[in-house]
């Protein structure tokens, strides 16, 4: 079974438990999770701490293998040893702490790390590095040591390091959690651009709802299960469910819901401040 035909990544009834020192299972981190991700899609995964988001992410490129169930990436099963490196190249991963994923002592050497592992010829590595740095807007820092960069810049370098391997999908596990607002904006702009302009499939794990709102689809996880899934506009209307799952409700959505409760005729699809302003202006001109 290869899962859904239109699906680029298929997670099929995956369960996973971490095994402790003794080899005994330590509870289930993923419980019968199924998810299809189409090529070019931008999916956000949200959920409280410990809900299994990182565990799911590590299944998408075979860093972890399902205890039961299967994960397919572009038709390759992650359990298939022989496709391991193809899968890792197809699905690139960016992690939370920018300091702990940069390997080399200069920016360009670090971006070259992936292509070097793939055994590409020197000239090709050079062009891939230059391209990747240009895509994330870090070309002028090619020779800088990573520790001299800001958090947002480091995280863009980490993204460049993955892009240089020409992945078709990018999985980012809370890439903005340790950044200041400026860094967060830089990274989010880079991610959106990669999805829109380069057509790269994006799976973004985040605990910032205003980031999740930018996705095509939001997946909500709780206790190792997917509990809700749909377009941001739909998912974020269910304020009570989000509260119950201990997730923040974006202030704009909260405001819209309160205004609606005061019988103001606001449309359902308000997710950003801009949309709110437009909707309110429209209401005013109608009056």
């Amino acid at each position: 079974m290869m899962g859904n035909k239109d699906s680029f990544i298929t997670v099929d009834k995956v369960s996973f438990s971490y095994t402790g020192e003794s080899g005994a299972a330590e509870g289930t981190a993923l419980d019968q999770v199924s998810l299809n991700i189409a090529a070019g899609e931008f999916v956000a995964i949200v959920g409280h701490n410990g809900s299994g988001k990182s565990t799911l992410a590590k299944h998408l490129n075979g860093l972890l293998l399902p205890t039961s169930g299967d994960v397919w990436v572009a038709g390759m099963n992650t359990k298939d040893e022989q496709h391991r490196w193809d899968i890792r190249q197809t699905v690139g991963m960016v992690f939370q702490n920018p300091d702990n994923q940069i390997v080399a002592a200069t920016v360009e050497e670090d971006v070259a790390f992936g292509p070097e592992n793939l055994g590409l010829p020197t000239e090709l590595i050079r062009s891939r590095v230059d391209e990747a740095l240009a895509v994330v807007g870090m070309s002028e820092y090619a020779e800088a040591p990573p520790h001299s960069l800001s958090g947002g810049q480091k995280q863009r370098v980490a993204i460049a390091g993955v892009i240089a391997m020409r992945p078709r999908c990018l999985v980012l596990d809370e890439p903005t959690a340790m950044l200041d607002p400026v860094g967060r904006r830089e990274v989010m702009e880079t991610i959106s651009r990669l999805n829109e302009e380069e057509g790269i499939t994006v799976v973004l794990i985040t605990h910032f709802m205003d980031e999740a709102v930018k996705a095509h689809r939001v997946v909500v996880m709780d206790e190792g299960k997917i509990v809700q899934e749909g377009q941001p506009a739909a998912v974020f209307q269910e304020i009570d469910l989000l509260r119950e799952l201990r997730l923040d409700v974006p202030p704009v959505i909260e405001l819209a819901s309160r205004l609606r409760a005061k019988s103001l005729a606001l449309p359902e699809a308000i997710l950003t401040v801009d949309e709110m302003v437009t909707a309110l202006c429209q209401l005013r001109s109608e009056v």
Binding site: K58, N61, L63, W85, R88, Q89, G92, M93, F95, N97, D99, N100, Q101, V103, E108, E109, A112, F113, G114, P115, E116, N117, L118, G119, L120, P121, T122, I125, R126, V129, G161, V162, M165
Partner: peptide, 27 residues
Amino acid sequence: FRRADDLAVAMEARCYRGGEGRTKLKQ
């Protein structure tokens, strides 16, 4: 130790598998 753990996972995710068959940016 935490950093070492993270780094090992990040290196594996970027297809690191030892020196065999590896090429270099700067020859």
